[in-house]
């Protein structure tokens, strides 16, 4: 039935051709699967000491201007809550620790590399891709700077060069793709003095997180942030305080692009609905034409001379 419909219309409507191709391409894009060994990183906020070396390493690895490492031990930056931006793809924030006010809790912020990333689903040109290894990366050569990824991201991670007229970038953590190609760890993971960032396979890292919570139930709250949040993320957190008090957005288990993609695929499922609508309207047009305008000889006309004859 579907093929029949389409075949009929391919003959008459040139648009049908491009539209059909469009429909199939959308199906292909959602079938991409992830590797079993995909990356997972655990942020153990109980171990993090807020030295901000990861910020320095990240800047250096991405060739951002970064001052001397020594200057990063300045704790006055913690007075203000900070977000990643186009000068730093990761930042550390400090939170009060009620259990022990002298040992604050530090929480690193960066792209979470969602399992089902909203930005990848949203990007108009597919400049953002979820790679097999789990990382979400941005393609400079494709991006048109529409900033829809920023609208879509539930963690508000992608940032943009608002000060640039030419070649503005979308900036976000790429899990140090360049370094990993050379078999190196992401810069932040490598520099962390305490290995507060545990880098490994997502499944293994998850079980490590569970073990740590089980071993120290008085230290951690029983919640691995990122295990299930919006369908899971590559970066996961454990902490001694409820995550909504650590300014982590409270998110459900539903994937961010879930509803949106369902609607999209509903409207475009193998391009049946648009083609059906086209057929319906065509039929309506034909029926109405013959019911009302029996005096007309032309099937359809916008020719003014013909129209004039009616009046």
């Amino acid at each position: 039935m579907r093929n029949l419909n389409r075949r009929n219309f391919l003959k008459t409507a040139a648009i049908g051709i491009s539209a059909g191709a469009l429909g199939t391409s959308s199906i292909k894009a959602s079938d991409k699967s992830l590797s079993e060994d995909r990356i997972g990183i655990l942020v153990d906020t109980d171990v993090c000491v807020g030295c901000r070396h990861c910020e320095w390493a990240c800047r250096t690895a991405h060739e951002f201007p970064a001052c001397d490492l020594e200057e990063y031990s300045d704790i006055s930056v913690f007075e203000k809550y900070r977000r990643p931006d186009n000068t730093s793809l990761t930042v550390i924030n400090q939170f009060e620790n009620e259990k022990n006010p002298l040992l604050p809790i530090y929480v690193k912020v960066q792209c979470m590399h969602c399992e089902k990333p909203a930005c990848v689903s949203a990007c108009i040109v597919g400049a953002l891709t979820k790679l097999e290894d789990g990382s979400v990366v941005w393609d400079d050569s494709k991006c048109i700077g529409c900033r829809y990824c920023m609208v879509a991201c539930q963690f508000q991670i992608p940032t943009y060069d608002y000060d640039k007229a030419i070649d503005p970038h979308i900036w976000k953590c790429d899990l140090c793709r360049d370094r990993r190609i050379r078999d190196k760890l992401p810069a932040c993971v490598e520099i962390c003095p305490n290995e507060a960032l545990v880098f490994g396979k997502r499944s293994e890292v998850l079980s490590i997180a569970r073990k740590r919570i089980k071993r120290k139930p008085d230290v951690y709250v029983e919640h691995i942030y990122g295990e299930n949040e919006i369908g899971g993320t590559s970066w996961m957190y454990i902490a001694g305080k409820s995550f909504d008090k650590l300014k982590m957005p409270p998110l459900g288990k539903e994937t961010a692009p879930g509803i949106s993609e369902a609607i999209q695929h509903g409207i475009f499922s193998y391009f049946v609905p648009p083609v059906a609508l086209f057929a319906l309207l065509g039929t309506l047009m034909w029926v109405n034409k013959h019911k009302r305008g029996e005096s007309d000889t032309e099937i359809e006309s916008t020719d003014p001379d013909k129209e004039e004859s009616e009046f």
Binding site: S26, S121, A122, C123, A127, C143, S260
Partner: peptide
């Protein structure tokens, strides 16, 4: 509004069927 206005043609050749914006863009263009 788009940052890289000179790449406005990109959606014509770079497709992402999951993106609502892509659909809006293509439909508006056609």
């Amino acid at each position: 509004d788009i940052g890289r206005f000179y790449y406005i043609w990109h959606p014509l050749v770079m497709w992402n069927g999951n993106s609502a914006l892509f659909e809006v863009g293509i439909c508006v263009m056609i």
